[in-house]
Design a protein around this nucleic acid. Structure first.
Lengths: 303, 303
DNA sequence: ACAATAGTGTCTATCAGACAGTATATA
DNA sequence: TATATACTGTCTGATAGACACTATTGT
């Protein structure tokens, strides 16, 4: 604690003598979209889909393939600021709540070298999208929304030497939503879970990847599963998908899309009733009873 | 996607052209200790405390002060492996489940330069401690357990421009448990919460720190609050504090120590009953009815 | 016998799941 | 009028909180 010693030490300390990785922030941006071209029945509501935002790479490596929005950490900013800046640069959205998700630091995950990636989750609603320049950029070809489908294709539970492990294989399909250009990206990701007491040591491994850059397919899987778990433990995150005004059916569909299971309407409404306030507005969207518009009951959000 | 182009690009790509931070893993290791020197009443059980493992720094900066176990990421390992290696090196414990907690990357948080810290949580039980060389190292002066006390000393809720913020001040006290050397470390940490919809944007800021190196006092606060939240959402983490055999009172005390609130015994037992199996062993520790020893019901842990 | 801890039984309020029912828009 | 969606009421079983009670030990 000798002050002089301390100053001397720091003056002679060269942090650059140690090798170290570059840091990237990668952001999985989710939103909900409407499937168009379904004029079959004037009564029927449009089918909704869960969407993921991807960026087409203009540079090598993986030039022309699609990657998660993100980029490298720069001096003077925190990793959260990196994520926010990159999202703003690439999409024009200034959404503040990026949820830290996981870290990917395996060697060899990026051909450019030793690169550690911090993954984040962001959820955008229709108001956020209106304020972004995503639609405007259009076929400037940069950003694009993809309908995301995750299908579990295999599951093997093993037990040996007192440890239980479980391998699951998922097929990830990303189908471009907005322009009818039919771009389809596919990947297979293996989830390896090792159970130790209550802990689940989860690792994601890329099996194959078509059109998705780097190891981003497994990052997508990991964030998708995180989003599910977050929703399970706190339904309030579903409101992130909703604009200022929304119908309860919209909200329920958001939850169902993420969780992958259907809910019973009255039960769902009872559950979320404390978080919403009825407005006088009505939403009419078909040959059936119009629905009431609701807003967030913000007081209940602040615990 | 021209293969030749790709190879050319990578050959000429120099990742070292960009500045980047060093990466450290810092681990908050918790366990439960017994307060000794309480021979007042032969019937009474020893008081238990929540303990945190700290390492006395042998080098500058902060030489002689106490820091969380941890260290720098090395080439060829993932950040999880870094945490595991450092914990093994400094304590001899080979506990596998390190839970990733948060990232600290503010500029100026480390006088040595631009250093990003990944914080982890580990929980050790008596069996783990027996297998470590912690006790052996004794007054080699390296590692030491500290009884941790966190006291909220202030809370201010503000509301302006549609955003609600809340500042809380915590006093952190670390009191050395094992040797009676009375070492006491203190720090004051300010927690700043910004509420946005359901999101809580939490930041921890160091107000003062006595004897605790770097910004580790705020990392301790952050991990402590995380541990609490983890316990809230899944009681099974309490079993990490228990050795293979334990009494239900021990388990309940562990939960109470972390959560900071007393529980009603029959309700607690009902809640955890599915996770435990009764053994034929008994534990006798005072002038009162002996308690049954229990073990984990592992089948219930593997969901 | 006493004091301290160990362990059990039960009442009650609250909450989640399931289902049956009514209401209202447009072709 | 038919149909798809919007919305409400209520029965049921499961769960969580509170409290009262019995059991067993060493001094």
């Amino acid at each position: 604690m000798n002050e002089k010693e301390k100053v001397q030490f720091l003056a002679s300390y060269d942090i650059n003598q140690y090798d170290r990785p570059s840091i990237a922030a990668d952001i999985a941006v989710f939103s909900i979209g409407r499937k168009l071209a379904e004029e079959l029945d004037y009564r029927r509501l449009p089918t909704k889909t869960l969407r993921l935002l991807m960026i087409r790479r203009a540079e090598q490596p993986y030039q022309g393939e699609w990657a998660l929005p993100g980029g490298f950490m720069q001096q003077g900013e925190t990793i959260q600021e990196t994520a926010r800046r990159e999202l703003k640069e690439e999409t024009g959205t200034d959404k503040a709540y990026l949820t830290l998700c996981d870290v990917f630091s395996d060697i060899g995950r990026d051909p450019r070298g030793w690169i550690l990636s911090q993954s984040f989750i962001a959820v955008l609603n229709d108001d956020d999208l209106a304020n972004s320049h995503l639609e405007a950029s259009g076929d400037a070809g940069e950003a694009g929304w993809f309908d995301i489908t995750v299908q579990k294709t295999a599951e093997h539970k093993k037990e040996k030497h007192n440890t239980v492990t479980c391998d699951k294989e998922y097929e990830l399909t990303l189908e471009r939503s907005a322009p009818a250009d039919k771009t389809q990206l596919r990947a297979v990701v293996r989830e390896h879970i090792e159970y130790r007491d209550y802990h689940e040591l989860m690792t994601y491994e890329l099996v194959s990847s078509e059109g998705i850059a780097f190891d981003h397919a497994r990052i997508i899987l990991s964030t998708f599963n995180s989003l599910k778990r977050m929703l399970d433990s706190d339904i309030r995150i579903a409101f992130d998908f909703m604009p200022e005004q929304f119908t309860l059916t919209d909200l329920q569909e958001a939850v169902e899309l993420v969780s992958g299971q259907e809910l019973i309407k009255p039960n769902f409404r009872r559950k979320i009733s404390e978080y919403v306030l009825e407005t006088e507005h009505q939403v009419q969207n078909g040959g059936h009873r119009p629905s009431k518009a609701f807003v967030r009951n913000l007081e209940r959000f602040y615990r």
